[in-house]
């Protein structure tokens, strides 16, 4: 029959040379540079981070220095962005506020993402009642509009920047849980995860070593996009007087203190508002671009 002829020994396949390798990072960078807007936003984010780190040491005025001779002044050579109702230099305060807004945004999303990822992995991997309980709790949290939920939490914990971080991270938990759960479901069904199971890998190893890495790119994209939202939420809470308290140079609090002078001195609210706008924008644009870069369906 046919088989004896078909099946002959052939040269060993394993010794043939492999194509030159490119590191995953260099491929990632190449794709990212092609996403112009995201790349520029990325540079903007790096700029903001640098300002947050070195800003407070290079500002021309102390953030608490009041100068009653220069109250509500417009932009000038002396005060680049003008002064607020107490005669404090707006430029210095906005630069100093960068650190607050970025760290509030970063840490609240980090905490929310960590808890949400953990819950999402558990729900997706174990399924059944674990999934039902976790996802129903998330549904309850989802039922509240995000801001209302955050206001509620701050109302319980009391005002303050730390409690804003807690509130914003709690409202980030369910969205991360849901998004990680769905990537977990697809990763769990992947054949190579099944192969690991057949070898005898414990559940903990399956989750952390094989399923979690599959969800990371989704988490990173979502993380970046949520930072913008979190900064906005924290500024809103401060605007409402629930977050950073005066004389903190938090942007939302600055907006709040300048709102009585909107018609006479609009720059007092305009510049902190622009700072919030710019920061949220670069994070969202960067997140959008990252999503396209990390999407395996978009080939380079």
């Amino acid at each position: 029959m046919a088989t004896e002829k078909q099946i002959e020994t052939m040269e060993w396949a394993g010794t043939s040379p492999l194509p030159a390798r490119k590191s995953p990072f260099s491929r990632f960078m190449k794709k990212l540079i092609r996403q112009r807007l995201a790349f520029v936003s990325g540079i903007g984010i790096i700029g903001l981070i640098i300002i947050a780190i070195i800003g407070p040491s290079i500002i021309p005025y102390k953030i608490t220095t009041v100068d009653y001779q220069y109250v509500l002044q417009g932009p000038s050579a002396r005060h680049w962005l003008g002064t607020d109702p107490y005669g404090r230099d707006l430029f210095s305060r906005i630069i100093a506020g960068t650190r607050i807004s970025l760290s509030v945004g970063f840490f609240s999303v980090l905490a929310g993402a960590a808890a949400g990822t953990f819950l999402g992995l558990l729900a997706g991997f174990y399924g059944k009642w674990v999934d039902s309980i976790i996802m129903r709790i998330c549904d309850i949290l989802f039922a509240f509009p995000g801001m209302i939920l955050a206001i509620g939490i701050v109302a319980i914990l009391g005002p303050g920047i730390m409690n804003v971080v807690i509130a914003v991270s709690i409202f980030n938990i369910p969205s991360f849980a849901r998004i990680v759960r769905s990537s977990t479901l697809s990763a769990r069904a992947a054949l190579f995860v099944e192969a690991e199971r057949s070898i005898g890998a414990k559940n903990r190893r399956l989750i952390w070593r094989h399923i979690f890495p599959e969800t990371i790119s989704t988490i990173i994209v979502y993380f970046t996009m949520r930072i913008g939202t979190a900064i906005l939420a924290a500024a809103s809470l401060s605007f409402l007087g629930l977050g950073a308290q005066p004389p903190s140079p938090e942007w939302g609090a600055m907006l709040s203190s300048g709102r009585d002078y909107l018609d006479t001195s609009p720059f007092v609210t305009l510049f902190p508002g622009l700072a919030i706008f710019f920061t949220v924008l670069v994070f969202n644009l960067f997140g959008d671009g990252l999503r396209d870069v990390l999407d395996p369906k978009i080939k380079d």
């Binding site: 992947a190 190579f192 192969a195």
Partner: peptide, 12 residues
């Protein structure tokens, strides 16, 4: 131990 059909999907 098992050898799988799809050598693409069965390796991480």
């Amino acid at each position: 131990q098992m050898i799988f059909q799809d050598p693409y999907a069965s390796l991480s």
